[in-house]
Design a protein around this nucleic acid. Structure first.
Length: 537
RNA sequence: GCAGCUGUAGCUCAGUUGGUUAGAGCGCCUGACUGUGGAUCAGGAGGUCGGUGGUUCGAGUCCACCCAGCUGUACCA
């Protein structure tokens, strides 16, 4: 039998654990400052509570890890933290304050094809506001996401929280005649195509919206089958970075409304925009461009679309007033996200900086989190409607990005002070000594201080080799003569290694006892503190 | 899932048109060094060449299938 790690799972060493712990701590502080409170739910849920099982099968869908309980009920490992929260809120609805603001971190599991940076178990850190239908809740979540990324050390300008609204997408679908249950499949295809804008570009997406697309490997993806001009319209409309469309603000303002003959509702909508400050230009323009494109294609404006755009404008207004400019939170119509349960605003946190990859080509990390409004999730468990919105950070992915940025400790933490007995008979003497170090007030006050006696057998040098591998800074050596004299030899391992680089010959090496000195037992803590201080800053 | 590429020591890789006992560097272990990691020197362990079957006098090398990995694509609640 060979020892092997299951595909798509990862072991984590001390360096990674320490880094993740720091990261979670930082995120938690931001969330708590916003007034969110902690909750934890288990890794397993009843499969139906996760809301995903195929209609005509009694077996849970692939994609989740599932097993049958002894009462034959299906259990699944959670694939995100949102569905379990909905279950928790529904189950404890009466005693929770509303709106309920909660955060939680935990492992989630997906039974999918793993890849570089894609695991079948990974950590998410979520925050949600349940019980508020106000777009202020959505705006706040976006603000918090931006603050969180900055708290983690990502500079302003190196990230952006992109915001869109499912109602806009739905409204456009409606306008191009894809409303209704009969078109659900094609709607999905269109949404997926839009989702790929950043990767495939406008051309690729236009193909996906129309006849279909063949990729480099020759694989063919079936398209949505839209008419060419409609595909054009959709691809243009949801182009990413829509922030600077071709039409300048002035030309919108100066449109002679009466002359174009807009319907009353449309006119009032556009007139509204005139009162909006220039910072909301993106949404305004998007609204106008949408309106204009629809009109040119003889398609109708609709309520869903208007509501969606008005919500986006409102969110822009809120975050702007709170001091979040467009370099942090930005409306981007190409954001699609979670195709299933989102009902309103959707968000995506994206890292915008590039880093040279292994092959030298610049690599973007892209999305490190996302979320949105899911007004239907909790109500699956209760009669009444419970609006909710939330955001989820992909911890592992973000950690990888931070590591590349150098914002995360990547080195293994320094090892303990190791006391090495010269012979086995000295073990009691050393054990007493090491315990005195652990009990020393001043040493204990040092962050991360640890002391241990070398427990390995073999030769004396084994102890030093061990200290080396553990990245220890200080070794204490005790032989018979030292024990009798109540003394110890203290060695600065880092300084010793440094000095050894200059040594060329064996004789010289033997002659030197690099970076070590003898100290009385009582002076040990002070000597150790001095060496540690030398190397920890 | 589909397509293309790749599988030689713990790691990174060599291995000539198919030809003897398959190599290197790093790492690991042991020793030298009067009681010392890191320097130096000497030695050692470790591979059914991803697996199975085939072609051949002979296969790490050629062929088929399988498995695994990488890349793209699809899916990702």
């Amino acid at each position: 039998m060979s020892a092997r790690l299951p595909r798509g799972f990862a072991d984590r060493g001390p360096a990674e654990l320490a880094a993740t712990r720091d990261m979670l701590d930082t995120i938690r502080k931001v969330y708590e400052r916003y007034g969110f409170e902690a909750v934890e739910t288990p890794a397993f849920e009843y499969t139906d509570a996760l809301g995903k099982f195929l209609p005509d099968q009694d077996r849970p869908n692939e994609g989740v890890f599932s097993l049958q309980d002894d009462d034959e009920q299906w259990l699944s490992l959670r694939y995100d933290l949102t569905a379990p929260l909905a279950r928790y809120v529904a189950e404890n609805f009466d005693r929770l304050p509303k709106p309920y603001r909660s955060y939680r971190a935990g492992w989630v599991f997906r039974n999918e094809k793993p890849g570089p940076g894609r695991f079948r178990q990974f950590m998410q850190f979520d925050a949600d506001t349940v019980g508020s239908g106000s777009v202020a809740a959505d705006a706040e979540i976006c603000m918090m996401a931006a603050d969180t990324l900055e708290a983690l050390g990502i500079a302003r300008g190196d990230y952006v929280i992109k915001v869109n609204n499912r109602k806009v997408l739905d409204g456009v679908m409606e306008a191009i005649g894809l409303a209704g249950d009969a078109n659900a499949g094609r709607r999905l295809t269109v949404l997926r195509a839009i989702d790929k804008l950043d990767r495939l570009g406008v051309e690729g997406v236009r193909l996906l919206l129309g006849p279909g697309r063949k990729d480099e490997s020759g694989d063919f993806t079936k398209g949505a089958g839209l008419d060419e001009n409609i595909a054009d319209l959709v691809a243009t409309l949801f182009r990413p970075g829509q922030g600077s469309p071709q039409i300048p603000w002035d030309s919108i303002k100066n449109i002679p409304l009466a002359h174009v003959g807009w319907a009353e509702r449309e006119r009032s909508f556009i007139q509204d925009l005139e009162f909006i400050e220039s910072n909301y230009l993106t949404v305004d323009m998007f609204g106008f461009v949408t309106w204009d494109l629809l009109r040119k294609n003889q398609l109708e404006w609709n309520d869903t679309l208007e509501t969606g755009i008005r919500e986006l404008i409102e969110i822009s207004r809120l975050v702007e007033k709170a001091g979040f400019a467009r370099d942090r939170i930005r409306i981007d119509p190409s954001v699609v996200r979670g195709l299933e349960y989102y009902t309103g605003p959707v968000f995506e946190a994206e890292l915008t900086f590039e880093i040279p990859g292994d092959d030298g080509k610049p690599v973007r990390f892209g999305s490190v989190g996302g979320g949105g409004r899911y007004d239907g999730l909790v109500s699956r468990f209760r009669g009444e409607k419970v609006p909710a919105t939330g955001f989820s950070i992909g911890v592992s992915r973000l950690a990888a990005a931070l590591q590349k940025l150098g914002k995360l400790a990547s080195a293994e933490p320094a090892g303990p002070v190791v006391v090495v007995p010269r012979t086995a008979a000295l073990a009691p003497h050393c054990m007493r000594l090491v315990q005195r170090l652990r009990d020393d007030e001043a040493l204990r006050a040092l962050p991360g201080f640890a002391a241990e006696m070398y427990l390995g057998g073999g030769s004396f040098k084994g102890g030093l080799r061990y200290a080396d591998k553990r990245r220890c800074v200080v070794a204490i050596m005790i032989g018979e003569s030292e024990a009798e004299a109540g003394k110890a030899v203290v060695k600065d391992l880092i300084e010793g290694a440094e000095q050894a680089k200059a040594i060329e010959t064996n004789a010289e090496y033997r002659a030197q006892r690099l970076a070590q000195f003898e100290a009385a037992e009582a002076e040990l803590p002070a000597a150790i503190r001095e060496i540690l201080a030398r190397h920890t800053v």
